[in-house]
């Protein structure tokens, strides 16, 4: 046991300094927590960029029309798949089930959507390809999924998608076995229904039977 005066002396010298030291440590650690929280939120945009760049998860690429010289003779089968979220009262199906295209050759396919409800609805489609590893090589030039679609009650539209499969798919040892690619879409009711509401108010003026040709196209975003 040390003597009492010693003890007091030590308390006064020791306690002050560690308190600030503890404070500094705590501030650093809270900073770490804040940093990790920030990273968690940053992960959302980073993840999207990552998918877009790498074709991860079957994310397709957006491209200009391919050069004619890049066409090779090897064929690939493209299958078409259509789904509708249960909250969207539309019918949605591909017009053709499969297309055979040469690698690098531009092709066009059609999907058909019908609004079976009694009010106009804005829909938006998400998409990917299977197998996922083909996403990197699947290029869309034009696609109805780039925009939102507005369908009036009972309206039926045909929507095109133009695409090509990059010929370098046969140069990648991971994808050289890919003989068929399934392009899949799922239609959801869009979060932004303002275009549909505009239509609803003007609906009684226009003729309801002008189906097929007239189609409202709203740029996304």
């Amino acid at each position: 046991m040390t003597k009492q005066p010693d003890k007091i002396k030590r308390r006064t010298t020791v306690t002050r300094e560690p308190k600030t030291r503890n404070g500094v440590t705590a501030v650093i650690l809270f900073g770490l927590v804040a940093g990790m929280t920030g990273l968690a939120f940053a992960s959302d945009p980073l993840y999207r960029i990552f998918c877009k760049v790498t074709g991860y998860g079957g994310t397709t690429q957006v491209a200009e029309a391919p050069a004619k010289s890049k066409i090779v003779d090897q064929m690939v089968t493209v299958r078409f798949d259509a789904n509708v979220n249960k909250l969207l009262p539309w019918q949605f199906k591909p017009v053709q089930n499969t297309i055979k295209v040469r690698l690098g050759e531009q092709a066009i396919a059609f999907y058909e959507a019908t609004n079976v409800s009694d009010k106009p609805i804005v829909g938006t489609a998400t998409f990917n390809v299977a197998p996922f590893k083909a996403g990197e090589y699947f290029n869309k030039i034009e696609c109805f999924c780039f925009t939102e679609q507005v369908l009036k009650p009972g309206q039926m539209v045909q929507m095109p998608v133009t695409f090509y499969v990059d010929q370098s798919i046969i140069k990648d040892r991971n994808t050289v076995d890919v003989k068929s690619i399934t392009l899949s879409y799922t239609f959801f009711a869009s979060d932004d229904q303002s275009e549909a509401e505009k239509l609803q108010t003007t609906q009684f003026i226009t003729d309801e039977k002008d189906t097929i040709i007239s189609r409202e196209v709203v740029p996304k975003g």
Binding site: L29, L32, V33, A34, G35, M36, T37, L39, A40, F41, S43, D44
Partner: peptide, 14 residues
């Protein structure tokens, strides 16, 4: 804990 829990908290908030 310090590195993992904030990620859960962020995801839960989303």
């Amino acid at each position: 804990l310090l590195l993992a829990i904030p990620v859960l908290a962020g995801a839960l908030t989303m």
